[in-house]
Design a protein around this nucleic acid. Sequence first.
DNA 1: ACTATTTACTAGACACTGCCTAGTCTGGCG
DNA 2: CGCCAGACTAGGCAGTGTCTAGTAAATAGT
Lengths: 211, 211
Amino acid sequence: MTSRPFHHGNLRAVLLEQAEEMLRNTGVDGLSLRELARQAGVSHGAPRSHFIDRQALLDALAEQGFVRLTENIRSALAGRGSFEERFRRVGRAYVDFGVEDAALMELMFAAKLNDPSKALQDAASRLFETLDEAIPADPGSGDPSATDGSHIDRGSARVRFKLLFAATMQGTATLITSRRIARSEGDAIIDDAASALLGSELGRQLMSRPR
Amino acid sequence: MTSRPFHHGNLRAVLLEQAEEMLRNTGVDGLSLRELARQAGVSHGAPRSHFIDRQALLDALAEQGFVRLTENIRSALAGRGSFEERFRRVGRAYVDFGVEDAALMELMFAAKLNDPSKALQDAASRLFETLDEAIPADPGSGDPSATDGSHIDRGSARVRFKLLFAATMQGTATLITSRRIARSEGDAIIDDAASALLGSELGRQLMSRPR
DNA sequence: ACTATTTACTAGACACTGCCTAGTCTGGCG
DNA sequence: CGCCAGACTAGGCAGTGTCTAGTAAATAGT
């Protein structure tokens, strides 16, 4: 639906693409619907056909961001290597994304998501599911495929490890973005986190099993 | 300077106070200089005498935020207890602050700080110095009082530990604020981080010393 | 095939914002 | 007392997001 061009072409896609660039250049505050319309050569009211709100545009951008981050992490996960190596690769992918697209990352994790659209929520959930897949299934729970989400084992080592990982990477990206630390220090944090988390009881609990 | 009342009273302080409340209620986007002036009963141009910019107001708020966060951490640090207990207390203080004043936290760690005022920069630095004090001095370095900042040992276990800690807490606060996880899960992350970091080589390196 | 409806888009308006500028009042100082 | 720097007022400007009524075009209905 709303897929093929007719009047202008596919305005929605063009707007999103331009918006992402504008976001990178000028930040969230500098992102103006009217300026976007001007660049696309349409009237200032045109974007309203595709995004009811400015916030709707931002939500769509955030959704795209989650999709791209998930892809990045998935490809960081693809290669071979020990769990620790993959830990570091995924961590770097996460932090890299957050640093290179700082404004987008801010959008994705903004407090605005009081009632996010289902699409956005799904995109975010998919990111966290992907992180789950990166972590060995919890040997403590009888069921190894604990990704089905029907019965979320909140206290499982797997979930706890994932959350700790996500928090650390998220925070690292924030510290770099806010110029509190340099990118190289961020890498050091990732390395330290890898050895600390994998060496912890939580980490060993996950590693100590056959497959 | 600009301390005592004359015309209106101390507008600057009133504006800051109201702004902090407005920040809590409506977020950064909802913070309007004109509305602030209205509430204070002054003309819409009045704030300009105290804040050249909207950004200047935001910077001042961020500065205040750093001061308050530092105080909170300091008092969390004050009580007795093992290093691990204090780790958890400080972590909770950090995360609590970031969750309760999410918009302010966002301001403090926004990417906007391209050329922050000296006052803001100092306030931020003081926070990180306070975190330093919470961590035992690095036994590896000959000088135990490594807080002077003149020769920042970038690779010291102390600094690395601090950064890893800060990143984790910062990220935890973000995940909670963005409704990705619940507050209780945040506490679990803090606990897991405490045991993981203190049990790591980095942590044991810091703990293995007399005093 | 002709109409009807939905949709994309235009154009104008409104309220609001931050910022600038010129003027006014006031408290403190030489 | 006269003067002056600083706090404050009032008006205006450009820009914004959102709403509305109207237009044109693509799709759907019969």
